[in-house]
């Protein structure tokens, strides 16, 4: 782990997921640093593009994969548009991992509901890999992903693969859909009657637009899941990654250090107020 000084990383591969959305496969160039690098699903790295700047990006690779680190990135700003142009062999800097990650230990012996929206699926992917590889330790796993338009869905094969796993339900919704879209047209919350879970022993992991997460948390709480077992991954401007620069303050918490994953119980009142 490196908090202050970036480590050099090399781009091994670059994959276009959809227009403006790409995945970089990275490896730390110092073999000892790569060997020592370990993260928990839900954590993020600060990626440094030489001469341009740094951005916080969640880690999507499987934590058991020791030889590479994967990031799926949307090109929206100066740094991410520069990262989009990187090719295999190019170098960048990497600090991390930062943040707390998903409470995977608390998922054991419980039904799990993962609800994500848009690129919110990225920070949870590592967690789903973790669940699937230790399938017997968890109850029913429900995976719900929502997108604005059916064309925005990435990792379709991955969802189809998870859908074939035992005791697993995969549900996908698009606000707008092309003809022949096999899944739901509408909101993710429309699909909640099709989830398989026992509210008394269920845990929820959610990541996506705040409005979506609020609706998800409120409706699942109404179905009997206690607010301390509904976990949301929040996003704010983050520059240092270690709770010093102040940009990600959310009430008394630093999202980069105390989060990004929080219990709905602890953030519900603030999350509903605009501009906090």
């Amino acid at each position: 782990m490196s908090t202050a000084l970036p480590m050099e990383a090399e781009v091994l591969a670059r994959r276009e997921e959809s227009p403006g959305l790409f995945t970089l496969q990275l490896r730390l160039t110092d073999p000892a640093a790569q060997a020592a690098y370990a993260f928990r699903p839900g954590q993020f790295n600060m990626l440094y593009l030489y001469g341009v700047g740094e951005v916080p990006i969640s880690i999507v690779s499987d934590p058991r994969e020791e030889t590479l680190i994967e990031h799926t990135i949307r090109a929206v700003g100066r740094v991410t548009r520069g990262l989009e142009r990187l090719a295999p062999g190019d170098r960048l800097g990497l600090r991390g991992p930062f943040g707390n990650g998903w409470p995977l230990g608390d998922c054991e012996q419980r039904d799990v509901i993962v609800v994500t929206g848009g690129l919110g699926c990225a920070p949870v992917t590592g967690a789903i890999h973790y669940l699937m590889k230790r399938r017997e330790r968890f109850g029913h796993v429900n995976i719900v992903q929502g997108v604005k338009h059916s064309a925005d869905l990435i990792w379709r094969e991955q969802y189809e693969c998870w859908a074939r796993m035992p005791d697993t339900t995969v549900l996908i919704a698009a606000d707008e859909a092309e003809p022949l879209w096999p899944w739901h047209v509408g909101r993710v919350t429309d699909l909640f009657d099709r989830l398989h879970f026992d509210p008394a022993q269920t845990i929820v992991l959610s990541c996506g637009p705040e409005g979506m997460m609020i609706a998800v948390a409120e409706q699942l709480q109404a179905k009997g899941i206690p607010p301390e077992r509904i976990w949301l991954s929040l996003e704010r401007n983050m520059q240092c990654g270690i709770g010093l620069c102040g940009h990600c303050q959310f009430g008394a918490r630093f999202v980069c250090r105390d989060g990004p994953v929080f219990r709905w119980r602890d953030v519900a009142s603030r999350l509903k107020i605009r501009g906090l």
Partner: peptide, 17 residues
């Protein structure tokens, strides 16, 4: 300054606190 980054002609990066 937090750190200085150098890039050589091969594109390799080094970082110094």
């Amino acid at each position: 300054t937090l750190f200085t980054a150098r890039r050589d002609t091969e594109g390799r990066l080094t970082f110094e606190t």
